[in-house]
Amino acid sequence: MAATLLDAVSAVLVLVLVALGLAVVFGMMRVINMAHGELVMSGAFTVVWLQGWHVPFWGCVIAAAVVVGFFGWMIEWVLVRHTRDRPLDTILATWGLSLVLKQAIVLLFGPGSHSVPLPLDAMVGLGALNYPAYRLVVMAIAAVVIAGTYLFLRCTNRGLATRAVMARPATAELLGFNTDRTYSATFAAGAALAGLAGALVAPLVSVDPQMGLGYLVPAFLAILVGGAGALGGVLAGGSAVGASTSLLGALWSPVTVQIVVFGLAVVVIRLRPQGLMRE
């Protein structure tokens, strides 16, 4: 029972971590990044690649965030900036990009799946329960990153400036804020979060070129269920989608769970298009 609950918390934190980058980009820039799943995948493959060079795992994790963040900066510069007033074309462009990234990984690493060894192979005793230490570490990092993102946007001057640019771009520009730079920094940060998430989950899952879609759809549903725009919405939506997936997984087969959870999420989005957290 306690293990099931802990698994659910872990699923929620990982999903929120994956969805966080997407939520920052979608909520603040109104940009739908269909390549987000492939950015997560790129983070995981950065770890696979660097481990081939015997780089220590935690070095790989940091490198993954930096590399994928740089990807994001380039993507904003080449694609997103030019389709800002055509949101549906942004969807197409980033979707095309997801195909390109997927195929690039197939060409570089082959179509098969890779595994990353657990950096911490210990179990931690929690009362009567033994739980894998690495999962606890991932949960802690995810919680810290989520809280950090929230505090950055709410409690720092730069976070305030970012929110101002997103809410009233024209006014912010008149007041002397560089909107273009804010947009590219935001997109790069969203991508870096995806890369970080991918690197952290890499030892827990099978890393293959097709893994992106499995993250994209639940992450989007979490954002839409919670309510786009507010970071609190990501937490709520991520908890709803992640926890129900994990808890129902104890009862039913993964496929049934996915069908039920996606179906429920679609119904919630339909009944509350503004999301659970919005008035």
Binding site: F220, V255, I259
Partner: peptide, 21 residues
């Protein structure tokens, strides 16, 4: 708009999964 796109994607994924299983 974008919401419609995501919802249709989710429905297609659900249908494919149901058929596969």
């Amino acid at each position: 708009g974008p919401y419609f796109a995501i919802v249709t994607l989710a429905i297609a994924v659900v249908l494919e999964q149901s058929i596969r299983s």
